[in-house]
């Protein structure tokens, strides 16, 4: 019983990281209708950039004496990474996705796939294939709940996911910009004729998504360190997004832990039967089941259309 509870608990915690990544994905889809396959790469680059600011760049002496350490203090480093993320989002939107407005879905998906390949290559070039570790800024000593063990970093990720969920739900329900974004996703032309600046909305969406990804990258870095395999997370999160429903923020937050739990249970109970590797493939089995029986996910908008 304890084992089962522990599996479920750690599943929820791992799943909350999926939720964070899925959130960035849903944000872009919800506000521009673009499916961003490069989400994992954005997370990875965010992680590497923040690593560079946290412990990659040594400050010159004059600054080092002001801050009292050889590296940027953590808040400044995070602020700088967020700044880079904003720039990254802007550049991607302006150079690559704006020419794709009105193009067929295959072209848009291929564009983000090209972006993913380019970002993979760029990260390998700039940071190399090795893993990088972050300085510790969330305590690592595990929290004990009776017989269950909980890692504080995962708990932090979980809390951040919940916080972002509340924030973005309010943003899309109440704020002017949020409503504009939803209108733009629904129909570019109608939104434009109602006075929504569609290009600005798209730029906003990419900036927000890049920032959320960078935050996720920092969080993941503080848990396991970062390396090139992080980009795979972007693909692993696609089942989460589809299970939750492509345009549903609560869906992303709920589906993350569901996939996390199923994955953990699969590893514990099925791995011995089939000889391992369930962790990588379980989300995709779930994906197939979702596509066959509930293609629009748990909370996605049902577009009634006979195929």
């Amino acid at each position: 019983m304890t084992v089962l509870l522990q599996l479920i608990l750690s599943g929820i915690m791992v799943g909350s990281i999926y939720s964070l990544v899925a959130l960035g994905f849903v944000l872009i889809y919800k506000s521009s209708g673009i499916i961003n396959v490069a989400q994992g790469q954005m997370l990875m680059i965010g992680g590497f950039v923040s690593w560079t600011f946290l412990s990659g760049i040594q400050l010159p002496d004059s600054l080092a004496t002001i801050f009292g350490s050889k590296y940027f203090p953590i808040p400044i480093a995070i602020a700088l990474s967020v700044l880079v993320a904003i720039l990254m989002g802007l550049i991607i939107e302006r150079l690559l996705l704006r020419p794709m407005i009105g193009q067929p879905i295959l072209a848009v998906v291929m564009m983000t796939i090209a972006l993913a390949a380019f970002m993979d290559g760029m990260t390998t070039l700039l940071w190399g294939a090795g893993a990088r570790n972050f300085p510790e800024f969330i305590p690592r000593t595990p929290i004990r709940l009776g017989e269950l063990i909980l890692s504080p970093q995962h708990l932090f990720a979980f809390l951040l996911a919940i916080l972002l969920l509340a924030g973005f739900t309010l943003f899309f329900q109440r704020s002017h910009t949020g409503l504009q974004m939803r209108a733009a996703a629904e129909d570019h032309r109608v939104a434009q004729s109602l006075g929504v600046n569609v290009t600005r909305v798209f730029a906003m969406a990419w900036i927000i998504s890049a920032v959320v990804s960078t935050l996720g990258g920092i969080l993941l870095g503080s848990i396991n360190g970062i390396n090139l395999s992080l980009s795979f997370l972007g693909l692993k999160v696609l089942p989460v997004v589809l299970l939750g429903g492509l345009e549903s923020i609560p869906g992303a937050i709920i589906a993350g832990p569901i996939i996390g739990i199923l994955e953990n249970l699969g590893v514990a109970y099925l791995d011995p039967l089939v000889g391992g590797g369930i962790k990588e493939v379980a989300p995709f089995f779930i994906l197939l089941v979702v596509l066959l029986f509930k293609p629009y996910g748990l909370f996605g908008l049902q577009r009634i259309e006979r195929v």
């Binding site: 291929m110 090209a114 993913a116 390949a117 993979d120 290559g121 760029m122 390998t124």
Partner: peptide
């Protein structure tokens, strides 16, 4: 990295 980046840019 070069192969990946060139593939991305060409695409």
């Amino acid at each position: 990295s070069l192969a990946l980046m060139i593939f991305g840019v060409v695409l």
